[in-house]
Amino acid sequence: MKFNLKVWRQKNAKAQGKLVDYTIDNINADMSFLEMVDVLNDNLTRKGEDPIAFDHDCREGICGMCSMYISGRAHGPHHAATTCQLYMRSFKDGDTIYVEPFRAGAFPIIKDLVTDRSAFDRIIAKGGFVSVNTGQAQDANNLPVDKADAEKAMDAAACIGCGACVAACPNSAAMLFVSAKISQLALLPQGGPERNNRAINMVNQMDEEGFGNCTNIGACEAECPKEIKLTNIARMNREYLVASLINE
């Protein structure tokens, strides 16, 4: 297979970036998208050019590191899959493919397709946890959890923190990511004592990082590789509202 690629190249955070044309030939349909980029980078390196910088690690769809915006879609054309789970057979021979980074004001570009998503870590540091030191825990079965609640918490906890929701959102909102963590802990009794402060602090940090607001577009849910539901955002709004009233 042969492809025309238009890849976003940007030297560093401050430089002006642009789409650069590459053609690549002899691509096997069973190759993953990242393996195709590996081959392209191998070609570039042999020619003495700078290879394309991109984030990746586990290559099995769970670490959340890979993050390409492929022909207008976060993680490419498939539903519920990460970039590393995309295979070249999903494209037609001769296709032109656009490859861009996850774009958002709060995700500054470091180089080429690599962005700085540390804003997510700073949001988690504001309350995406239960304050229990090692050794302070009670017996695990002292806290029964309704099975349905545990399932819902697990649905929310499946988030891999890749940032596709932010990249897909026209407002660059991080509501799906933040609400997934707030929901997980709001649905479990362990999250109870810190519930109100968690909602306030995480939402405030989200705003401070420069993420936009939710206008119920739903692109985040549509593009989420782990199918995190919009209902989490509704739950987060409720948590935030209740917390605001109580804190008043």
Binding site: F129, V130, V132, T134, Q136, A137, A153, M154, Q184, Q190
Partner: peptide, 9 residues
């Protein structure tokens, strides 16, 4: 015990 207390579902 620790993992459950941390909210592992």
């Amino acid at each position: 015990d620790q993992c459950v207390a941390q909210g592992v579902p």
